[in-house]
């Protein structure tokens, strides 16, 4: 930097970080504790349907919920968006899809990553299964993502 040039525009990288921690509450706290054990639970809503992931209160009646229901680690694709060039915060090396996945035994779809070879191989109703992280800590990222039921887990 030339300090003699007093009009020289300066530039720099900087990071603004909000280092939040939050308490998930007892219902989501137990759901996360179960993920660490490779177990998936939804919760029974007021109308008997199974919400996954579980919520502490029913989204329609606001009733307090506490009846956990085990759900399968397999499910089907409801909808998806292909991400050809992941950005840093996606924490994924290669192309992948964000997919709405309805697990067998659940009545609501949820959003997670889907790993497969290319966008054209994805279709609504396609069967997928959980790809667990080896290093689990009780977070939604304990699920690394989903892969086609027929696939062997690759290096995505």
């Amino acid at each position: 930097m030339n300090s003699s040039s007093s009009n020289q525009i300066l530039e720099a990288d900087f990071e603004l970080g909000f280092t939040y921690t939050r308490s998930p509450g007892i219902i989501i706290g137990k759901f996360l504790a179960a993920l660490k054990q490779k177990k998936l639970y939804g919760i029974r809503g007021s109308d008997g349907s199974v919400l996954f992931p579980p919520t502490e209160y029913d989204p329609r009646t606001a009733a307090s919920l506490n009846d956990f229901v085990p759900v399968s680690a397999e499910g089907e694709i409801v909808s998806w968006t292909w991400i050809e060039t992941p950005r840093e915060h996606h924490q994924v090396k290669g192309p992948f899809a964000f997919a709405l996945i309805k697990l067998d035994g659940a009545d609501t779809p949820f959003l997670h990553r889907l790993f497969c070879d290319d966008a054209s191989s994805i279709s609504a109703g396609m069967k997928v299964k959980v790809d667990w992280n080896d290093d689990r800590c009780g977070a939604i990222t304990d699920i690394r993502g989903f892969v086609p039921l027929t696939a062997t887990v690759g290096n995505f």
């Binding site: 720099a12 603004l16 909000f18 280092t19 308490s23």
Partner: peptide, 15 residues
């Protein structure tokens, strides 16, 4: 239950 989860948000700027 898991009592606390880290949910940091980082914004990277070039100013």
């Amino acid at each position: 239950p898991i009592e606390s989860i880290a949910v940091p948000i980082y914004h990277h700027y070039h100013a």
